[in-house]
Simulated scan of single mutants.
Amino acid sequence: MTRTIYLIVYNSPLFPAHWAIWIPSQENQTIGKRIHVEGDVATGFQLSFDRNYDKTQDSRKHEIIILAEIDDDHVIDNPGDGSNTVDREPKDAIESVAVKVPPPGPSLMSVARTRGTKVVIKNCQTWLVDVVSALHQEGIILDNKAVEIIKNAPKN
């Protein structure tokens, strides 16, 4: 049996869009797992597994893009008592790959510190591109189209 994994793009007209992987539970397609990093380019980011996340309760403008079909064996739903919880401990193969990709540290620096060097800004988008690439390399995502889909996803 397969599961569909999605990219949620929280659009923003002023700032880079926030990206997250969304995996709906088998029982309820509006509740599931959201995998993302939270933070900012000045202080860095932290990995977050949002369990029992109800996407209908989030009022932010967003779009959902199909990334890939994966084998159901790679995903574990963690319903617990049904309440939304957040942690950083991997419980399945997808989460185990995500924790191996380091969240971006601070990449926004003062002009004095960067004089003469090119600054590469890393954020949730760059991290998720790396995660999807790692999932493909590990054989969890079999179709290479997911890497292209995420690279071409809306940036704002």
Score class of each variant (00 low, 15 high):
residue 34 R to A: 11
residue 57 Q to P: 02
residue 85 T to N: 08
residue 3 R to Q: 02
residue 39 G to R: 00
residue 90 P to A: 13
residue 69 E to H: 07
residue 27 E to Y: 10
residue 131 V to A: 06
residue 52 N to P: 04
residue 53 Y to A: 09
residue 67 L to Y: 13
residue 36 H to M: 06
residue 32 G to A: 08
residue 29 Q to D: 15
residue 100 K to A: 03
residue 146 A to C: 06
residue 41 V to A: 13
residue 32 G to T: 03
residue 109 M to E: 13
residue 68 A to C: 12
residue 87 D to Y: 01
residue 4 T to K: 12
residue 35 I to Y: 09
residue 62 H to A: 11
residue 127 W to C: 01
residue 106 P to L: 05
residue 38 E to D: 05
residue 85 T to G: 08
residue 74 H to W: 08
residue 10 Y to E: 01
residue 153 A to T: 11
residue 108 L to G: 04
residue 57 Q to E: 07
residue 37 V to E: 08
residue 3 R to D: 01
residue 55 K to W: 10
residue 89 E to H: 08
residue 48 S to K: 10
residue 64 I to H: 06
residue 106 P to V: 00
residue 116 G to H: 11
residue 148 E to D: 04
residue 137 Q to T: 14
residue 103 P to I: 03
residue 119 V to A: 07
residue 121 I to S: 06
residue 116 G to A: 03
residue 50 D to C: 03
residue 88 R to C: 12
residue 104 P to M: 06
residue 124 C to T: 08
residue 16 P to N: 12
residue 125 Q to Y: 13
residue 122 K to I: 03
residue 89 E to Q: 05
residue 112 A to N: 06
residue 128 L to S: 11
residue 147 V to I: 15
residue 143 D to E: 11
residue 115 R to E: 14
residue 106 P to R: 04
residue 105 G to R: 09
residue 30 T to D: 09
residue 62 H to S: 06
residue 99 V to T: 01
residue 88 R to A: 14
residue 94 I to G: 06
residue 78 N to R: 14
residue 126 T to P: 02
residue 50 D to G: 11
residue 6 Y to E: 04
